[in-house]
Design a protein around this nucleic acid. Structure first.
Lengths: 238, 238
DNA sequence: GAGTGGTCTAGACCACACG
DNA sequence: GTGTGGTCTAGACCACTCA
């Protein structure tokens, strides 16, 4: 019987050795780490193997390298972090809860000038408009007001959005290339407050998401969440 | 005179060729891409060189590989995206605006039971507490209510936070290992509303951030932003 | 000049998938 | 069996940094 460490490919053993040392504080941030030659001798592997291990650590941001100088433990100087936004359906299901959607509006409309500019269509052109409220275990959690460019998703008007979310449908039906988000706190509109069953002055978390193919805008969606029922969470490790 | 492409290392030329083809739609998502052997012949380089190019594309999430099958253009099936949170000082400066901070409170206090648990100290132990309002061009933008574990940052109480933000100071003075965020929409407290100069019922974007060293919690901060003045933005490209 | 990383080669053996 | 990726080797040349 052999241990997993003995089984692993050599480059992974080298990588694991270095990673464990960094996690244990053996090389504090900025410290000089072993050279490729030292590791080559230590592990009895070729230099290419050691090089791959270190290069991957570099790609992961754990070490910094300078030609002619050496390899150093990375200072954890990131002052910015990232926050993940998930599809609401997945999020609810992953909590083991029941998601269901009520479609309040699903039709084609003539686009206003401002909307047409954002969707990349002619003013007055027909675009799809849906207004859907998503519930978690029967409680309204999100009011989704969405416009879709029919050039990128011509069948959008025919879908049954009680069975698949617009987000999921559009991910499958279009060639997503880019997405933009903005997040703010504000009041819901009167209609949104009614649909969500909240007071008109209750703070809401509002996400506006726009997505694009390589050529054209796909959709712009306004996602309104009651502040007392929904928040975003993120975690970050170097 | 030679073009940059001719100068670049072979693995980068291969990588660039594949990346450009993906961006141009030559291999749509899911399509089979050239094998290592084909690229080896095409570029007259060794297989290791081609392998490195493709492996890096895989690490970047642009292609998927299966042993015995082949390399495929990655389907852009990510349904989640990321949003970056920046330090407020950097963010204001990068807009070319002036940041200044007003320190309303800076002292050591006895920790309540709930706070002590979050900071990993004994109930009643002294912890640092600061209450700082950050302004952009003179307009209050963020009310920062922060508690700090003195075990991880013993000099926190002596800093001049009109000159450096707590975030910046703690990044430099501690060995950050992990950070957690939550974002929600809610009303400010009465005190916060007064300090920010807003109505008590105005929706606010509230970020709660907790950071940790490998061993212990460093700080927990509550960052309150008027919803009309501040939002978060993010972008995502595959 | 000695030590470092950056890169490349030509071949090799293996595990895996598919017809 | 054939083709694919996964990995390793032993050596090589280069550019860079520092004493």
């Amino acid at each position: 019987m052999v241990s997993p460490e003995t089984m692993a490919p050599p480059y992974q053993r080298v990588k694991h050795f270095l990673k464990a040392g960094l996690a244990a504080g053996r090389w504090p941030p900025g410290a000089l780490m072993p050279s490729e030659a030292e590791l080559t001798a230590e592990f009895s592997v070729s230099r290419m193997t050691v090089n791959r291990a270190i290069r991957e650590l570099q790609a992961e941001g754990l070490v910094q390298r300078s030609q002619g100088v050496g390899t150093f433990a990375a200072p954890l100087h990131k002052v910015s972090s990232t926050l993940t936004i998930r599809d609401l359906h997945d999020e609810i299901e992953s909590r083991g809860h029941v998601h269901h959607a009520v479609v309040h509006l699903q039709r084609a409309e003539a686009a206003s000038a401002a909307l047409a500019a954002q969707l990349g269509v002619e003013p007055g052109a027909r675009v799809f408009h849906t207004l859907i409220v998503h519930h978690e275990n029967g409680v309204p959690l999100q009011c989704e007001d969405r416009f879709v460019n029919p050039a990128t998703a011509p069948r959008y008007g025919d879908q049954d959005f009680t069975r698949i979310t617009p987000t999921h449908y559009l991910f499958g039906a279009t060639a997503l290339w880019r997405a933009q988000y903005s997040i703010e706190a504000a009041r819901a509109t009167g209609q949104e407050a009614r649909l969500l069953g909240i007071a008109p002055d209750e703070p809401c978390l509002i996400v506006v998401r726009r997505t694009f193919t390589r050529e054209a805008p796909i959709t712009i969606g306004r996602l309104v969440h009651p502040g007392t029922r929904y928040g975003l969470q993120g975690e970050f490790e170097p």
